[in-house]
Simulated scan of single mutants.
Amino acid sequence: MLLGETPTLTQHEVADAAGVPVELANELWRLLGFPLAGEDEAAFTRADVEALRLTANLVSLGILSPDRQAALVRTWGRSFARLAEWQTALLAELAAERPGDTVEELMSLAGGVVPDLEALQSYVWRRHAASAATRLLTTAETGSAPMAVCFVDIVGYTSRSRSLTEAELVGWVEEFEDACTGLVVDHGGRVIKTLGDAVLFVCDDPVGAAEIALTVTERGDDPDDTFPAVRAGLAYGDVVARLGDVFGPTVNIASRLTAVARPGRVVVDEGAADVLTGGYSLVRLRRTSVKGYSRLQPFALRRVR
């Protein structure tokens, strides 16, 4: 049902119908994160043929060079695999709660929900594409742009997770991610990735990043707030953005600073300290040696009361 029809085509038949070498078809399939089917296994549909045709068209137009092709397809596979896992698990939970056969209920739910999910995913992609295009206009000439990068890390995640049930752990982490995402969006930032016990986000405005980091650490210090205790590392400087991720020394420094920060504290680098002046107190800490940086200069960031 999800594939649109029963698979009837082998890998060679799909490649021949799309007019591409079978080696390219298999490589794209592998980059998407799927195990290769046997040569005589009927594992594909006409939708796979169309997908290969579209890919070949993008290659012929010069849009997908070999290096871009691998990176883009790999990113697609990872992103949609995670999304599909979550959506399928959600539908399965709903189906299990209904009376009757779980498989039949799951099929019924999927039949009604999948078209709506497809439409919403297309809508969300277009909105994010519009935002990404706007940001690209400011970085097209240099390939990088100054921005604030921050890691927020849950303190004592490993020990706490051992004392929670699976449902409690999922709820705890989701509450953490939801709260961080809301704060980041409210301050004009973007969540780059969530890592279970950590969130990586960026802001064009370092003040916005500082407010997010200080707010989450303050919530973690509040005994009446269920938000977990956290620490944060924030750096400001040139960052290279590619395929939804960020790279460069600024990102590395922010990660290292997170390990330096004490629970409930925000630690920033010299780049951030230079631009965060009004309304904040910056305390120079002892220089520290971390991986890749022998004498990193951290600063403790606090609000001026």
Score class of each variant (00 low, 15 high):
residue 264 G to M: 00
residue 186 D to K: 13
residue 262 R to F: 06
residue 276 L to E: 02
residue 290 V to K: 04
residue 113 V to P: 00
residue 195 L to T: 05
residue 231 R to T: 05
residue 292 G to L: 08
residue 272 A to N: 02
residue 219 R to V: 09
residue 139 T to I: 07
residue 103 V to F: 13
residue 268 V to P: 03
residue 62 G to E: 02
residue 19 G to Q: 07
residue 170 V to L: 14
residue 290 V to I: 11
residue 226 T to M: 04
residue 156 G to E: 07
residue 236 Y to A: 01
residue 210 A to N: 01
residue 40 D to M: 08
residue 183 L to V: 07
residue 300 A to C: 08
residue 273 A to E: 02
residue 1 M to Y: 10
residue 109 L to I: 10
residue 275 V to Q: 00
residue 162 R to G: 00
residue 296 L to M: 03
residue 58 L to Q: 07
residue 31 L to N: 05
residue 37 A to L: 05
residue 251 V to F: 07
residue 126 R to T: 12
residue 96 A to N: 11
residue 143 G to M: 08
residue 6 T to I: 13
residue 196 G to K: 09
residue 32 L to Y: 09
residue 122 S to M: 11
residue 230 V to G: 03
residue 266 V to Q: 01
residue 9 L to A: 06
residue 12 H to T: 10
residue 97 E to I: 00
residue 114 V to Y: 11
residue 118 E to M: 11
residue 295 R to E: 15
residue 263 P to H: 11
residue 183 L to R: 09
residue 79 S to V: 11
residue 157 Y to T: 04
residue 273 A to W: 02
residue 115 P to I: 03
residue 98 R to D: 02
residue 169 L to G: 05
residue 54 L to K: 06
residue 29 W to F: 14
residue 188 G to Q: 07
residue 193 K to V: 12
residue 191 V to Q: 02
residue 90 L to I: 09
residue 275 V to E: 04
residue 5 E to R: 11
residue 118 E to Y: 06
residue 155 V to N: 05
residue 156 G to T: 05
residue 15 A to I: 01
residue 280 Y to A: 01
residue 193 K to Q: 14
residue 216 V to P: 00
residue 88 T to H: 12
residue 141 E to Y: 04
residue 110 A to C: 05
residue 294 S to R: 15
residue 101 D to H: 10
residue 293 Y to S: 06
residue 65 S to R: 15
residue 227 F to N: 05
residue 282 L to Q: 08
residue 87 Q to W: 05
residue 242 R to H: 12
residue 99 P to G: 07
residue 282 L to H: 05
residue 54 L to V: 14
